[in-house]
Design a protein around this nucleic acid. Sequence first.
DNA 1: GACATATGTCACCAATCGGTGATATATGGT
DNA 2: ACCATATATCACCGATTGGTGACATATGTC
Lengths: 207, 207
Amino acid sequence: MAVKKLPFRDRQVTCQRLISAVGSLLAKKGFTGLGINAVAREAGVDKVLIYRYFDGLPGLIAAFARQEDFWPPILELAGNDLASFSQLPVKDRLSRFAANFIRALKKRPLTQAIMAWEMVEPNELTKELERVREESILTFFQMFFVKDSSDIDLQALIMLVGAALSYLVIRSNSLDVYGGLDLTTDQGWQRIESVVNLIVQQVVTPE
Amino acid sequence: MAVKKLPFRDRQVTCQRLISAVGSLLAKKGFTGLGINAVAREAGVDKVLIYRYFDGLPGLIAAFARQEDFWPPILELAGNDLASFSQLPVKDRLSRFAANFIRALKKRPLTQAIMAWEMVEPNELTKELERVREESILTFFQMFFVKDSSDIDLQALIMLVGAALSYLVIRSNSLDVYGGLDLTTDQGWQRIESVVNLIVQQVVTPE
DNA sequence: GACATATGTCACCAATCGGTGATATATGGT
DNA sequence: ACCATATATCACCGATTGGTGACATATGTC
């Protein structure tokens, strides 16, 4: 409230403050309380500028979505080394993917908030983000797994594991124990990773 | 608005109307818009009665939670026949459990809404519901699976599958395709069930 | 320096929110 | 029949919401 007045009259800076405010507010409080007034307050900017520059809150959120990298890039899911990753056996590729996926998701609270948001309030923004994510997932899948035309439904397997891990990571924010699994400790997550490893080792047929 | 006035002065009936209003409102709009005013409006009852009879909205929601059966009962997860279920091989028990779990969750939109709610807004109600569910899950697990002291982490496996299925069912409300999996058709769900079957058949060691 | 415009501030609106006090009326015991 | 009380309605409160128009001031152009 003290340093609120920043009449630098720099539209770019103001827009950036608004976009950043969406991010920090979303990370701080989740999607609840993500209103025009709250965003403007957080940015220290008058809310009328949201209407002027972004044509309303949805427009601002869309701008926010455009400049952020919510979904972990393929490179990160592959362990930052595409070449060596693609040379691994399919089993190990899947195991690594699971571990990388957990780590990538854990360090993106914003992504978790948005994924939770998608589940309760489908809207234009979440639809857009879903489209991007769906595309990213499919690209990743086709890049590393589609050529292994095994007799098992590899796609369904990967998505099942991905769904489980997504759910568990999101739940770990507000839940300590899930069905006896401790989601707060590394040991608990090690159990999860281990069972994923076990699954892929037993299920995936070698090439 | 027409038949709003029901001055029957029957406290039980009024309380029931309020409790039912929470349910229908939750199923209709999800947890958004679940406020004092909205609930009272839905019930066709003055909101002051919520304070009088339930000491506020949390109290009303708690009463609502107490009388509903959100979580599928163990009997249902076991396929309505405990005896024959417990005589199945562990593998088949797990496969049946997965199929029953999907069906049970699919036909409980209220449960889905609450599960989604738990992910974004932890509060007293969701905590309570989580406690009940956690207890139910563990009971189910100990009843049917704990005696099979295999070398694999059966608990982690079950919870992983449960997490995946929960996520996919909830997502199917607002998403058609997840990573190439069609969540709108029986064929898509058949793929999911099949891969679960494959996993348990390959991973679970026979007794 | 004058002026159009871009940028930002402020005041206000109607609607809704959670919450409370005052009041009316039906119920049930004496 | 009378009266205490349980039940329900209504009117209001301050705060907050999304949204808009009027106004002020800095910026850049001529």
